[in-house]
Write a protein that binds this DNA or RNA. Structure first.
Lengths: 241, 241
DNA sequence: GTCTATACACAGATAGAC
DNA sequence: GTCTATCTGTGTATAGAC
C-alpha cells in the first residue's frame, strides 16, 4: 500500500501552471478560424479579420449564454460587436454557418489539446488523473467554447449532430480505455467501465455547465479537480487495505 | 463490516415497482395545470382542457427537444397538436407564458415527488440511496419535464431563473444534509459535502441529459442507478476494512 | 471593408365568423 | 371552443453608396 500512497501524493500541475503551458489566446483561436475559412470570407486582410472574428465570437458567447444562439438576432450581434449588419455578413455567409464554424472550432480545440495530455503519463492511475485534470482545466480555459458546444448542439443539422455525438463518445472512450488497461494490469477494479467513464465525464462537465453554482460555493477549479480526483480514486482502485 | 454488507444487499425497489407506485399519468399532470391556471384560461370544460393541454405539452416537448423552445414557432405547435393558432391562444395567453407554466409545473412535480422519498428511510446510507434512486427514477418517469426545465432555463425572465437556481440548490441540499448527518453518526467520511453532493447530482442528471448515449450503450435505468449507487457508496462510507 | 437602407419571409398575436 | 384571415413587428439577408 505505501507505493500507492506515494503516487497519490505526487501532485500534478495546478491550473495556473496549466494555463501558462497550454493557454492559447482568443486571438490565436480567431486566427485559426480565419486560416480555416478564409476562402469563404470576403475579408482578406488577416489582421482585420482576426480582430473582428475575436469580437464576434466573444459577442456570440456573451449573448447566447444568456438567451441561446437561436434567440440571438443578427441585430443583437451587430450592436454587441459594434459592427454593422452588412459588415458581419462579410465574415460569414449566414447565421447558421456561423454556428457551424464555432461548433467545429470548439470541438477541434478540445480534441487537439486533450490528446497530448493522455500520452504524457505512464502509470494508469496517473494517466487517469491527468486526463480528468486536463479536461476540467481545458473547460475552464475555454469555458465559453465548451458551454456553447454543449448547449447549442440541437441547433445543428442532423449530420453535424452525429459528428458531435461521436466526439462525446471519443472523449468518453479515452477514459474507458484507461480503466480497461488499468484493470488488466491489476491496478483497477473490474466493472462496467463504460458506465463508469460516462459518469466521470458527467462530473467533469458539471464544472462548465453549472459555473454559477461553483462560483456561489466559492470553489476554485483546483479545489474542484482535486475533489473530483479524490472521489474517483477509491472508485476505480482495487481495495488496498 | 458484516452489518454494512447486509444493508448493501437490501435492495430498494426497481423502476417497474416505482412506476407503479408513483407514476402520475400525463393526464393527471395536465389536470393539475388546468386547476392551477383555469382562471386565466378561456376554456372552461375540464375534460376538453385537460385533453388538449396534454396534447400541447407533448407537442412542445417533442418539438423543443429537437430545436429548442425558442425555435419552435406557434405554427409548429399548431401543426403538431392539430389545433389551430386561435385555439392554442385560448389555453394560454402567449408563448412566453406557456414556457412559464411548463417550467413551474416541472419543478413542482419534482419537489412534490422527491420530498416524501427522503422521509421514508431511517438509516443514512439507505436514505442516501433512496434519494439518488428516487431522483433518477423520477427523471426517467418525467424525462421530458426534466430535460425541458434544464435546457430552457435561459429562456426565462431573470426573476424566474433565480427561482430555478434555488430549486437546484434545494435538491442538492437534500443530499448535503444526509452526508452531514451521516458523518455525525460516524457512518460517512468527512469531506467537502457540498461539493460531493453537487457531483452526485451531476451524475444523476446525466441520465436525462444524455439519454441517447445510454440508449446506445444499452444501459437500463435500473442498471444505471445500481451502478451509480455502487459508485457513491465507497465514496461516502467510512473505510470498513 | 464598412456603412445605411431596404427587401421580404415569418414570427407572435388577435378579431370575428361559425 | 375552434376555426380562418389578417395585423404588425422583427427576423435574416442583400444591394449599393462611401
Amino acid at each position: 500500500m505505501p507505493d500507492i500512497k506515494e503516487k497519490v501524493k505526487k501532485e500534478l500541475m495546478n491550473y495556473k501552471e496549466f494555463k501558462k503551458k497550454y493557454g492559447a489566446s482568443n486571438q490565436e483561436i480567431a486566427r485559426e478560424v480565419f486560416l480555416e475559412n478564409k476562402d469563404a470570407m470576403q475579408i482578406k486582410k488577416e489582421k482585420t479579420a482576426v480582430n473582428n472574428l475575436e469580437k464576434i465570437f466573444s459577442a456570440v458567447f456573451s449573448i447566447s449564454y444568456k438567451k441561446g444562439f437561436q434567440a440571438m438576432s443578427m441585430r443583437d450581434l451587430s450592436q454587441k460587436t459594434g459592427m454593422s449588419l452588412g459588415a458581419l455578413y462579410a465574415y460569414f455567409p449566414g447565421k447558421e454557418k456561423l454556428l457551424g464554424i464555432i461548433q467545429k472550432q470548439g470541438w477541434s480545440l478540445i480534441k487537439k489539446k486533450l490528446d497530448p495530455a493522455i500520452r504524457d503519463q505512464e502509470d494508469y492511475l496517473e494517466k487517469l488523473k491527468a486526463v480528468i485534470k486536463t479536461h476540467v482545466f481545458l473547460s475552464e480555459l475555454y469555458r465559453p467554447w465548451f458551454y456553447f458546444t454543449f448547449m447549442e448542439v440541437r441547433q445543428l443539422k442532423p449530420a453535424e449532430i452525429e459528428i458531435v455525438k461521436s466526439m462525446e463518445e471519443y472523449t468518453q472512450n479515452t477514459l474507458y480505455e484507461i480503466l480497461v488497461l488499468g484493470e488488466k494490469k491489476k491496478i483497477f477494479k473490474s466493472g462496467h467501465h463504460n458506465l463508469t467513464a460516462s459518469l466521470i465525464k458527467s462530473m467533469q462537465q458539471d464544472w462548465y455547465l453549472k459555473r454559477w453554482k461553483y462560483r456561489k460555493m466559492k470553489v476554485t477549479v483546483d479545489q474542484f479537480t482535486d475533489h473530483l480526483i479524490s472521489l474517483v480514486e477509491p472508485l476505480v482502485l482495487l481495495q488496498t487495505s
